[in-house]
């Protein structure tokens, strides 16, 4: 399993008062995931399985990500899907096209984290 670190270019431009400046939408369809200013920016290292893989690949690559929007209550999302529990978490997906994981849900704290690099931030 390869671990890649991904970062977000020009992150400062996406944050206003510690929150997401713009609404978050899916990278692949127009589905709105979160309204502006609902998420809180947090820096936290977490490894998420890749969203896509080549047909020839058997293993899912994991990407170590650092930049997340924290959403304290799942009902603060506009549209989002929750996977069955795997690896001790529930993965978040687009509610409409099912692309993911775009983040994860912590079963203990009930907090949700959306990876900045896996959603459209503007």
């Amino acid at each position: 399993m390869t671990a890649l670190t991904q970062s977000v270019p020009d992150m400062e431009a996406l944050i206003k008062d510690g929150s997401n400046k713009s609404a978050l939408t899916c990278l692949h369809c127009p589905s709105r995931i979160l309204n502006a200013s609902v998420g809180t920016y947090v820096e936290k290292e977490f490894s998420l399985p890749a969203m896509t893989k080549l047909k020839s690949q058997t293993d899912t690559e994991n990407h170590v990500l650092k930049d997340f929007w924290k959403v304290s209550d799942m009902f603060h999302f506009e549209n989002v899907g929750f996977s069955h529990t795997a690896d001790g978490v529930k993965y978040l997906t687009c509610a409409d096209c099912e692309m993911g994981p775009i983040g994860w849900h912590d079963l203990q704290t009930k907090e949700n984290f959306v990876a900045l690099c896996r959603v459209k931030n503007s």
């Binding site: 692949h28 369809c29 399985p49 890749a50 969203m51 896509t52 893989k53 899912t60 799942m74 009902f75 999302f77 549209n79 989002v80 899907g81 929750f82 996977s83 069955h84 529990t85 795997a86 529930k90 993965y91 997906t93 509610a95 409409d96 096209c97 099912e98 692309m99 993911g100 994981p101």
Partner: peptide, 23 residues
């Protein structure tokens, strides 16, 4: 998940399946 037949499918997500969704 009405668009799940579309070109974009996440193999990882479809393997573990979706529990519920919020709209």
């Amino acid at each position: 998940f009405r668009f799940s037949d579309d070109a974009f499918t996440s193999t990882f997500i479809s393997t573990i399946g979706i529990d519920f969704k919020i709209k």
